[in-house]
């Protein structure tokens, strides 16, 4: 199935992915609010996963796809941590308890 897709399709996908990465990075540099930055970090992680996939198909070795899945997991965990930080202004347990008391 993979071999029926022509090579230049993956090349075009790679170029498009680079453009998308640069756009996301611009939003990350400028990003007026913190939420812009969180969103752009998260979508950059997604683009990392896509990049590893496209690079694997482009070099004819799609064995890296399972590694790309691991990147998706890391991205998920760090986004959860960042959002928890937003909600509670802390990472550990103790400060959450204090907030609950209030």
């Amino acid at each position: 199935m993979i071999s029926t897709v022509p090579h230049f399709v993956f090349l075009i996908a790679l170029l498009m992915l680079f453009i998308a990465m640069i756009l996301v990075l611009l939003r990350l540099y400028k990003g007026p609010t913190l939420y812009d930055r969180v969103l752009s970090t998260n979508s950059f992680g997604t683009q990392t996963v896509l990049f590893i996939g496209v690079l694997g198909f482009l070099s004819g070795r799609p064995d890296f796809l399972d590694i790309a899945l691991l990147y998706a997991l890391i991205n998920f965990v760090s986004t959860i941590a960042i959002l928890k930080f937003f909600r509670y202004r802390a990472i550990g347990d103790i400060l959450i308890k204090r907030e609950a008391k209030k």
Partner: peptide, 15 residues
Amino acid sequence: AVVMLSSVFSLLSAL
């Protein structure tokens, strides 16, 4: 923002 950027920096070097 620096923390977000360093996370992206590390993703880029991983790539």
